[in-house]
Design a protein around this nucleic acid. Sequence first.
DNA 1: GTAACTGCAAATCCTTTGCACAATG
DNA 2: CATTGTGCAAAGGATTTGCAGTTAC
Lengths: 172, 172
Amino acid sequence: MINNEREQIAFANLSWRPCDIANEINYHLLMLDVDQRLRDHGLKVTAPRVSVLDVLRQATGHLNADEVHARLGMAGLEIGRATVYRVLAQLEQVGLVQRSVLEAGRSVFEISRGPRHDHLVCTRCARVIDFSDAEIEARRIEAAGSKGFVVVDHRLVLLGHCAACRAVTGSV
Amino acid sequence: MINNEREQIAFANLSWRPCDIANEINYHLLMLDVDQRLRDHGLKVTAPRVSVLDVLRQATGHLNADEVHARLGMAGLEIGRATVYRVLAQLEQVGLVQRSVLEAGRSVFEISRGPRHDHLVCTRCARVIDFSDAEIEARRIEAAGSKGFVVVDHRLVLLGHCAACRAVTGSV
DNA sequence: GTAACTGCAAATCCTTTGCACAATG
DNA sequence: CATTGTGCAAAGGATTTGCAGTTAC
C-alpha cells in the first residue's frame, strides 16, 4: 500500500546500504517501525511527519529546517515552515531524527542511524564528515564520572580543514 | 591609576586563585596584559571593553550576552546591547574570552583561563562544569587525522546529571 | 466525534547593521 | 585630527506561538 510504495522509493534513492549488523538492525527499524514508533509516542501518522522522514532519509548529509522545507516543496508537498519545525522537534524526541548544532544560530537534522556520532566540520568548504570513536566515547564517560557526572548525551564538533581543502591551498 | 584600581577590585572578587604554574602564567596574562593585548590587535582600550572583561572575570560561570549587559547595567554602566555583542566578539578574537554554544540559539562567554576546555551540562539543574582531558584531546586529533582532517578547534558538550541532582532524586 | 494536527500570520528571541556622534591614540 | 568605537533604532534570521480550520483514529 502507500506504506510500501514509500519504502521502495526511499530505498531506491538511499545513499547508504545496510552493511553490518548494526546498520541492518537500524535499517529495519528505520524502514518498518516508523508508524508504530510514532504511535507509541502518541503521535498520529500524518503526511508531514512521514514526508519529513523521507526527505531526511534520502538526504546525503545534514539539512537545516529550511532545507527540509524546500525539499518538501520541490516534491510538491506544500507544508508550512512552522509544521516542519514542529515535526522535526517531535521526530527528534521520538529518536528518529538527530539534531546537531554545528554552527551557532541554527540546527541541522539527519536520520538517526545508530548511536549518536560526532562531526568534523571543515571551516573552509563547510563540508561535514560524520565519525565516531569508541575510545573517545569511553574516555568521555570516565572523565565525566570523575566529576560525579553521569553522561546521558553529548555533542562533539571538531572544526578544521579537510583533506581536499588542504590539497587545494597547499597549506595546513 | 585607574588600571590598578580595576585590577585590585577584580582580584578581590575573583572566584579562583592562581594555584599552579599554568594558572599563574595565565593569571598574569589576564590581569596585566589586557591593555597591551587589545592594542596589539588594533583595538583601543575603551570603557566597554574593559568593563566587559571585568564582568566576565568576576563571574563564576558562563554568561550570555544579555547577562553581561545586565551586569554592566547593575554596575551603573550604561552600555548598549549592540556594543556588548561587538565587544564580546572582539574579545573572543583576541583570545581573552571564550565563546561556547551550549544550547542551540545562543552563545555563552567566559574569561579564557588556559587552553580551551569542554563542558559538562546538567540537564536537571543547568549547572555547567568545566573539564578537560588530555587523552580525549589527543585521541580526537588522531581520529580526525584518520579522515584526512586537521583539527583547528573543537566543541564538546557532555549532557547528563550532576552528583548533586542524582543525590536528590536518588536515581541515576 | 474528539483529540491531535496543520497552516498562516504574527510574535519572539538572539544577534547584526547603518548611521550620526563621541572618544582614543 | 583621523581613525576607531559607541548608542540607538531598525533590520535580520531562525524558531515559536495563537488560533481557526482540518484530519487521523
